[in-house]
Design a protein around this nucleic acid. Structure first.
Lengths: 211, 211
DNA sequence: TTGTTAAAACTAATGGTATTAGTTATATTA
DNA sequence: TAATATAACTAATACCATTAGTTTTAACAA
């Protein structure tokens, strides 16, 4: 019940990943991918739902790898040490897989539960690491958002070549993380916002989404 | 010596800006722009150097507006107050002009001095505001990079709709900035890195680029 | 007023892209 | 060995950017 077995999703994903990481995410088209695979572009539709589906597949693949790297970096560590390790792992991944990292930034389509789920595995990971700091629920969420902003901002600007002077970027990252860690301690003394509108929000969230 | 005066760069830029901010940056094409202007797309080539030139024009326009907003927010303030005001202005601009903000992220083409110059006006602004903190040259550069990472990361994730829970984003931004400000103070006690390789770099930079 | 001219806007054509419909070919299974 | 499901194909359509070459028109000179 199966004709030629030249292609499968695995081979497609590998070729697309190479294309993205070597030529840039924007260079990934069905045409360029088909050429690389020595196949006509309509053939790809048997394995992937068009360009949109290919990009989604790349995003899922990248998220899976990134989550795996982050998890590995955090196991056996806690507190500051875990935060540091995860930060380095995050930036290292973006450097090693620039195209795939860019793919992971694509927001999930409305109603794409699997993609949303994949995005949120990372959030859960960060959340658990932050448990060590005993923050109020609200402050913890701010801390998570801040951590993501930091990492994404740094990785993204670095990838765009926005930092041009030959001053060690790893040192900048260290400074950034140290600053963040020093700031988290400050948050511990801050109570939840009790002014009403936002306070109860976290408990009553409709879906199990994290943020 | 001039034929029809229906179009000029100003009108094109305004239409493209509306398109970018309302429909999204990715929706800006010569075709969609021409349609909006009730003109055939080849006509645009009389005013703009193709799609690439249009995107460059949008980037310059956005950078100019953003710089203007940041400058206004910083005048009459210094230190923490200036940093806070600039942060709010930055995020407010990204919210008000999502498409144009995305356009400003496009890295300048190699050899495009005007575009590079426009990018670096912002850096100079941040640099002057940070003068108040008396950091070593090296630490100041790390502080600038960190500040940009924070702001860009937050604005970018917010724009992508990455923060879904209904917890006030402005509060998150406050936390983020407060954390940063607390961290800068720590940097004041840190000397320049004297281990050799990076120390002298800033003085010997070939070009007057900032970073 | 009228003719010249420079440049804006046009039409036509080319080549690249994604996508759909319908056909061919082949590996598996009965 | 024959039937079948499906991968990969060809052909066609539509949209995009871009270039070449033509038409039109506003401004200036006579």
């Amino acid at each position: 019940m199966s004709p030629r077995i030249g292609l499968d999703l695995r081979a497609i994903l590998q070729a697309a990943t190479e294309l993205a990481d070597q030529q840039g995410y924007k260079e990934v088209s069905l045409a360029s991918l088909a050429q690389k695979l020595k196949v006509r572009s309509p053939s790809l539709y048997n394995h992937v739902n068009g360009l949109t589906g290919l990009r989604r597949a790349l995003a899922l693949h990248g998220l899976s790898q990134l989550t795996s790297d982050l998890t590995s970096s955090a196991v056996g560590r806690s507190g500051d040490e875990a935060i540091r390790a995860m930060s380095l792992a995050y930036v290292a991944y973006a450097r090693r897989h620039p195209g795939l990292y860019e793919a992971t930034l694509q927001a999930p389509a409305e109603g794409d539960a699997e993609h949303k789920q994949a995005s949120q595995v990372t959030l859960g990971l960060i959340s658990r690491v932050l448990d060590a700091y005993q923050l109020s629920d609200e402050m913890k969420l701010h801390a998570i958002r801040s951590f993501r902003s930091l990492l994404h901002g740094f990785a993204s600007l670095e990838q765009q070549g926005a930092f041009k002077l030959p001053l060690d970027l790893d040192v900048t990252l260290q400074v950034l993380i140290d600053t963040y860690l020093a700031g988290i301690v400050r948050l511990q003394s801050m109570p939840a916002n009790t002014e009403g509108t936002q306070g109860e929000v976290l408990k009553h969230a409709q879906q199990p989404e994290e943020d």
